[in-house]
Design a protein around this nucleic acid. Structure first.
Length: 187
DNA sequence: TGTCCGATATGCT
DNA sequence: GCATATCGGACAA
């Protein structure tokens, strides 16, 4: 597998979100296969970037191939990868992955040994990989990040995104078909 | 399965 | 000041 160059992210968020399914994402050697993503962009009412640039979403308007990490509900961290050609304000939310490397570290951070509860959901995933606001704006082609392209094509399903109140019709949630490591099943 | 609620940063009024 | 938020865990049924 080859590391994914930043140019990979300089495309529309839905394209990147789809192509990330099956890729390998590691943070300090802890991570696994990406099984679920969601795309957001500047013209999308569900996106943090919709209302323009603010202090919180600044990295979303930065160069592609960097992380956008924000706090959700005051207690969870969510990891996004910035996409598009700047200043697009688009990003892909990593919602779930299949644990492969550093599983013991994930168990300790998450306080559970149930595989699907380690990285099934954006908040869980961030906790398992040790992602915090400290990584906001960091490039994903350098440590502690490592993103590896998938080796072969994988079956991808799509559907409406989760946990949003606007833009619910846009089917920008993507998942690895048949995977047991999804935050929710696809209808 | 469904419902409830915690705990807080952010942005709008 | 206040409503909302890309959620997760607990607990009832």
């Amino acid at each position: 597998m080859a590391p994914i160059p930043q140019a990979f992210f300089a495309r529309p968020a839905p394209d990147v979100a789809r192509d990330l399914i099956g890729a390998t994402l590691l943070v300090d050697g802890v991570g696994g296969l990406v099984t679920e993503t969601e795309a957001y962009d500047h013209e999308d009412p569900a996106s943090h970037s919709y209302a323009g640039r603010t202090a919180r979403n600044a990295s979303m308007f930065g160069p592609p191939g960097h992380a956008y990490v924000y706090r959700s509900y005051g207690l969870h961290w969510c990891l996004n990868l910035v996409c598009g050609t700047e200043p697009a304000g688009s990003a892909v939310l990593i919602r779930a992955l299949e644990p492969v490397a550093g599983i013991e570290a994930m168990r300790q951070r998450r306080g559970t040994a149930v595989p699907r509860l380690l990285c099934g959901g954006p908040g869980r995933l961030s906790q398992a990989l040790g992602v915090t606001g400290a990584l906001d704006g960091c490039p994903v082609d350098r440590p502690p990040f490592l993103v590896l392209a998938r080796e072969r094509e994988v079956p991808v399903v799509s559907g409406p995104r989760i946990g949003i109140t606007r833009g619910t019709e846009t089917p920008w949630r993507f998942g690895l078909r048949g995977s047991a490591f999804l935050s929710r099943r696809f209808g």
